[in-house]
Design a binder for these strands. Structure first.
Lengths: 114, 114
DNA sequence: ATATTATTCAACCATATGGTTGAACGTACT
DNA sequence: AGTACGTTCAACCATATGGTTGAATAATAT
């Protein structure tokens, strides 16, 4: 397996912000409009719009228009990518080093470049 | 369960950079000195030192001195935190919405603030 | 056509991030 | 004590990020 470098940069970059994680949590329960998403925060709509753009670029959400509103939906496959990435390290935090080492030797070592 | 906001910010922020992910991969197989870590990249030692600081702040690595060198070791519990965070969404990418919804209702909704 | 509502865009600002260079520090070796 | 090696610090630079405000766009309603 080869690390999807740029994708992981965007996915983890998205998750590095609390507001964005909170937005993901909320839309995981129910899709919301941009306005509904913005309401709980003391940020401007433009700021929320930017956060949504970051999430969209990372393929963590999709938007579709319903009349004058935009409905925002979780697109969880990118989250799965992140989880799969971390899963490679599961053996380490379980102190089962052998199996991890075996795995790590199979992945592409020269794929860290932007 | 309550989201460890600042910790997750630092952990995901660390993982958002390809060089840092590559460093983690390499030290997962064997602890390395700072110099050994730096060698494969066309970056200065100071740049690598900064990356290691980021990883250290996120508690993803620990350093200990051996003579004039610093040995760098993976500290995988922070990675586990990230994996646990993502695990909350497993039901979503598996299209099992009910169980996710149940889970999400139990976590702290007001903990996204920096 | 005009107005209203929902969202985005553009310009701007402050701070963060990722990099460099050159000096400084810590430890070991003669 | 002096030298060499490994690493970090400080200052600086360019670009990215996260926020604002005010104008612009898109769809609906009057």
């Amino acid at each position: 397996m080869v690390e999807r470098t740029l994708e992981l940069n965007n996915i983890f970059g998205s998750l590095a912000d609390s507001t964005r994680r909170d937005i993901l949590r909320r839309i995981a329960q129910k899709e919301l409009t941009v306005g509904q998403i913005a309401k709980p925060y003391r940020l401007t709509l433009a700021a929320i719009s930017k956060h949504l753009k970051v999430l969209e670029k990372a393929r963590l959400i999709v938007k579709h228009r319903r009349g004058k509103e935009q409905l925002v939906q979780l697109a969880p496959l990118a989250l799965k990518d992140a989880a799969l990435y971390l899963q490679h390290y599961e053996a380490v935090w379980n102190q089962r080093f052998d199996s991890l080492d075996k795995y790590l030797k199979t992945i592409n070592h020269k794929n860290y470049g932007k």
